[in-house]
Structures are given as structure tokens and as C-alpha cells.
Design a protein around this nucleic acid. Structure first.
Lengths: 134, 134
DNA sequence: TTACAATTAGTAATTATTATCAAAACTGGA
DNA sequence: TCCAGTTTTGATAATAATTACTAATTGTAA
């Protein structure tokens, strides 16, 4: 199956890469609408799935209610804010993780792994301090 | 805030621990109904949140559409099936992960981390083989 | 007991996502 | 270029999971 690069796809892809964030479908919808006001939210959802299946973007299936998509398809880990659900990329040395232990874990055939660092992002830390003062 | 242990809470907690699985609210609802047929699904949702805030159970905020809850609150990692979304517990040596690199990552204050091994569980592997034969 | 607070069952509302479908836009020959 | 077939789109309906609301019930502590 060959991917046809429509205008909609082009702009969705461009805006996600431009943002350098891990956007949800509706956040991306808002950005794309500026260039293509008549685009449908369904088109954004549809194409995010298609683009991630084609390997042009990544799909984060981590925490939070909404799916988020990653502009960076190279191998990396994430850091995630428990308060606002913001996600950032991380590069961490992963020495010692490809062990026999993992490879045979519970009879699973392993396709990959991900390390998620969980914490509170700088913005939410500031907010929390302000809240305390009240 | 002190946690009042109601009948509903007791049974929800008991059934989750008994299952030794990572159940979603509706799966647990089905189990609990056998002992308490008039319980409401909303009560299950409500109490799963309360129990996890009280630290009596864990909340998995990982992949898949539904939230899942963990009978085991001790420190451990997970292995997760990309096909059926089943989750199992794992104990893996995590040497070399508590590095300065992580502790100061992107200005976050780190509260923890989780390693998720991703793969296909034995059951889904078997199903996939059967599918191929067709 | 008796008043007050917490919890419950039942249901409505909300949120995120997926499905449906007719219209529009592409594609690759004749 | 025109046409037939395929894809994709926009609009909207449907679904799934969760949360909010509310009156009734239950527990608690004086």
C-alpha cells in the first residue's frame, strides 16, 4: 500500500513536526485550521493514524486520556508530567536492558520497550508554588 | 482524610487482589456484581479512584483506551501486549537508571519512572498463527 | 435517637474517538 | 482531454469510557 500525500496530510505532518511537541488530535486540528480552515477533525484523526502506520510519525500510547503523536520517529524515551500530561523527549543510556530476562519475559515476543520518566514539569512546579502562597 | 472502608470498597479491593490481573473498571464491575448484584458501575469507578489515591491499589495510566488498576502496589515494571492490551507484572534489574541525567531531566521534578516492555502475549501469538493458516 | 456527613445507585452528560456516507478530488488509461 | 474507478474528504452520527449529578440510603458521633 502506497501512501498518497494529500494536502491535508502534508499540512498535518508539517504542523506536527513544526511544533516539536507531542500533540493530540484536537490540538493539531487547531493548528492546521489556520492554513486549511475547512478541514474536518475526522480528517485529522484519520490521517494521524495513517501517518503513524506509515512510520512518518509516532503514536504515543502512554498516559493521559488522549492519544498523542510524536514528530520524532527515532528511538527515544519520554518524560511525562503527571499534572498537565505534557510529554517531552529524552535520550537516556539504556545499557543493560537487552537481557535474556527481558527477551523471554512471560512468554511474550518482545517488539520493544519504553522507559517513561514521570514527574512534574517546570511550568506545573511554578503553578504549585503559587497555589501554596494563597 | 481518613478512608472509610465500606462494603463496596471491601469487595472491589478483594476482587482486584484475588484476580491477580490488571483489570479495567468494567471488568471488575462484572466480578463484583456476583457478590453485590445491585452495585453501580459508577461506584466501581469512584472507588477505584479513591482506593488508588489512598495507595491501596495502583493505577496504570499506560496504553489502551481504558484505565487499568493494579493489585500490586510494590515497585515493579510491566509488560504489555500490543494486540489485546493485556498487562503483566515484571521484575527487572534496573541498574544504572538513577543517574544524574534522569534526576535533572528537562527541569522536571522526578517522582518515578516506569519501564514498559511491549510485545505480543502468548495467547495472541497463538491466535496470529491460526490466522495465518486460513 | 437524632442530626450531620459520607456514600451509594441510577442515570444524564461529557469527552475522545471511530464509523458512515455522499460529494469531491485524484489516478491512469483510451 | 475525458472517463471510470478508486481514495479521500467533510460533515455528522454513533460508540465507548468516564465523570457529574442527585435524591435516597447508610454510617457516625454526640
Amino acid at each position: 500500500m502506497q501512501l498518497r500525500m494529500t494536502n491535508q496530510r502534508e499540512i498535518i505532518l508539517r504542523e506536527l513536526k513544526k511544533s516539536r511537541q507531542h500533540l493530540s488530535a484536537d490540538e493539531l486540528y487547531d493548528k492546521v485550521k489556520k492554513y486549511m480552515p475547512r478541514i474536518s477533525l475526522a480528517t485529522v484523526y484519520r490521517n494521524l493514524e495513517i501517518l503513524s502506520e506509515a512510520g512518518l510519525i509516532g503514536k504515543l500510547e502512554i498516559s493521559g486520556r488522549q492519544k498523542r503523536f510524536d514528530y520524532d520517529v527515532t528511538d527515544h524515551d519520554h518524560i511525562y508530567c503527571v499534572v498537565c500530561h505534557r510529554v517531552d523527549n529524552l535520550n537516556i543510556e539504556r545499557q543493560g536492558l537487552h537481557t535474556k530476562e527481558i527477551k523471554s519475559a512471560k512468554g511474550y515476543s518482545i517488539t520493544g520497550y519504553r522507559l517513561e520518566i514521570v514527574g512534574i514539569c517546570p511550568v506545573c512546579q511554578k503553578k504549585a508554588k503559587k497555589e501554596k502562597k494563597k
